[in-house]
Nucleic acid binder design. Structure first.
Lengths: 247, 247
DNA sequence: CGAGCTTTTGAACGCAGTCAACAATTGTGG
DNA sequence: CCACAATTGTTGACTGCGTTCAAAAGCTCG
């Protein structure tokens, strides 16, 4: 249940192909991208607020998050990345980082120079459009999270987040019969949902008690997706997946 | 204090020029874009969730918002647009609308065909990059709003929102000595901040009592920006404005 | 096997939501 | 220009979801 076997370039090809078919030349351009591999331990920043990066980071294995802190010391996680995502693709056109990106679990990442990426984008407008689209889907997820955090109570929020993770992980082949790895602590779940760790814990217990999820260690099982979807007021439209990934 | 005198194409040129200098040819390409003008009354949808638009909408005058509703009838406003913004630029690469866009105040808008925009983007990669950047700044604002709604209490949230509006409106010349028009009801403010109208009202009164804002009708005055910035835990970094617009 | 993290539990407190009524403002037609 | 309707803003009282603090119990890993 890991993506380690896929080559970095191949992962990108597969991802973009889920949107439209690439020509052989376009595929080759992606595979030829120079990618510098690295491992990152949990809780380590990959890029930090205020940085002016000259490269972007492709997540190959593990989970990363985009986060920011308020002055009074609270942290909010604004996005979660799963393998195949590019957490800081926006840095390609935004000079300075407006938030930090950190590994949540042990991560394998690949760094790509902005200059290389820009060259590819200029030569292949369809690839540029596809990358642009990626960032637009990210933005769509932000919008849904705003609704989630702003208007739903924590029980529903948690259900919604778990639904999203199930759909996104399934799209990259990381879910097996309703079960997936979620290498995240409850403190981080709280930071994701804008709540306190104590309350996050109680809500998880409630979801378990209601039979919406089962957990063993860092593994989550969703026995009845329909019920979780209902509890989370979840509609996958905002993920902009292909038809066959939505079902 | 209106942008009505500017031509639609000129408005876009001015906006993109705040990022980098356009060549004459690029400027001309923008000015030549076919733009269909329209007026929209308050509370009217410009595009709706589920739509598959073939055009995009440039806001010339007034305020629009991006919003979504939860199943139990609550509304969350995820974004506010001020003149010069393109509320649904993301529809250029996202087939189906994942949220609705509505006029808040009486609006003047200009519609541009996706096909025209795509043509310009393919021919002028720098313009494509500039539009892409626009959507990335939108995303950055979503991230900050997630922090705002997730982690700050309503008093601070409100202050933060008002700071953002001041900065953004000032960047398009709609603020005069700390005063700007805010044609928004308190119900809408509540929907922006993920709170109830009653509580929004009380927080506004508190801000008034503390001398952070003054209001007369739909006009807001910020007598001491530094104090409002402090109360809102506000850092304009995330707006990615030019240096001189930040000061 | 102990150190350190993560999860769980209990109890008190407080921010914010809800309901309901009233005041003020805005807009409209006569 | 006034009278009336409709929308918007304001207030009070009650309720409840969620926070905070503190401590205990379970895990993980060297």
């Amino acid at each position: 249940m890991t993506n380690g076997t896929d080559s970095p370039g191949g992962l990108m090809v597969r991802k973009l192909e889920s949107i439209f078919t690439l020509t052989d030349e376009e595929q080759q351009a992606l595979r030829d991208l120079r990618i510098e591999l690295a491992n990152v331990e949990p809780d380590r920043d990959i890029v930090s607020l205020g940085d002016r990066p000259s490269q972007t980071c492709l997540l190959l294995d593990g989970f990363t998050c985009v986060y920011k802190g308020s002055t009074d010391g609270k942290r909010q996680i604004m996005a979660l990345q799963v393998p195949g995502d590019i957490p800081d693709l926006h840095s390609l056109h935004l000079e300075v980082m407006d938030s930090s990106i950190a590994a949540i679990s042990p991560c394998k990442v690949g760094f790509i120079q902005h200059s290389d990426l820009r060259r590819v984008c200029e030569r292949y407008p369809r690839i540029a459009a596809a990358f642009w689209r990626e960032t637009l889907v990210d933005a769509s997820i932000f919008r849904e999270w705003l609704l989630n955090i702003g208007r739903r109570k924590t029980y529903s929020r948690m259900a919604h987040l778990l639904c999203e993770l199930l759909f996104r992980l399934r799209a990259v082949g990381l879910v097996e019969s309703g079960t997936f790895d979620l290498p995240i602590t409850q403190v981080e779940l709280a930071d994701l949902l804008g709540t306190s760790p104590v309350h996050a814990n109680r809500v998880i217990q409630a979801l378990r008690a209601d039979g919406l999820i089962r957990t063993q260690g860092k593994t989550v099982t969703v026995p009845d997706l329909a019920k979780l979807v209902e509890a989370g007021d979840f509609d996958p439209l905002y993920l902009h997946l292909k038809e066959n990934e939505t079902a």
